[in-house]
């Protein structure tokens, strides 16, 4: 992975986050949540700083980051598209919706479009099963999405 240079200001922000949790290693997951909301993702450089601040090994931090699906080491698009593949959505045809997004955005799950606008991911149940199949763009929830409605959703963000 290419090395990323983090700005001094951002590094300080990150250290402040660790400090807010008393540099307590038991708070690692909370720190990672904050860090991800600050940077959008958790690159290796960032994990190294957190490890140092909380006085744990980088391997430990990496182990936790890769264990939980919520944490990502890849930058997401400006409009992260998440397709729910929970059972209720699956039974109502979420797979076809996912295929359509892949086809139209020309990316696979876990990837970001070259212009950085969209990224595609799957998630397991947002607890909106009554609206199945469900698609999230950022925080906005789209319910009862059909494959032929995919173009309209993408168009909303493509202006």
């Amino acid at each position: 992975m290419a090395k990323i240079k983090l700005s001094e200001k951002k590094i300080q922000e990150l250290k402040d986050v660790c400090k807010a949790f008393n540099n307590e290693k038991g708070e690692l997951i909370n720190v990672l949540h904050k860090a991800q909301s600050l940077f959008g993702y958790l690159p290796a450089e960032l994990q190294e700083i957190i490890a140092k601040e909380l006085n744990v090994s980088v391997a430990h931090v990496y182990g936790v980051v890769t264990f939980y699906s919520f944490f990502t080491m890849q930058p997401k698009g400006i409009h992260p598209v998440s397709i729910c593949l929970g059972t209720a959505c699956y039974v109502r045809g979420a797979e076809k919706v996912l295929e359509e997004f892949k086809r139209q955005l020309k990316i696979q799950v876990g990837e970001t479009t070259p212009d950085g606008k969209f990224s595609l991911s799957c998630l397991r149940c947002v607890g909106a099963c009554g609206l199945a199949p469900v698609v999230l763009v950022g925080e906005k929830v789209y319910g009862r999405v059909a494959p032929d409605g995919v173009a309209d959703i993408i168009a909303e963000y493509n202006t």
């Binding site: 593949l85 929970g86 209720a88 149940c125 607890g127 909106a128 099963c129």
Partner: peptide, 11 residues
Amino acid sequence: DEGDPGAFMDR
């Protein structure tokens, strides 16, 4: 930690 896909009572 309601992880069971298709369940949303706890939520």
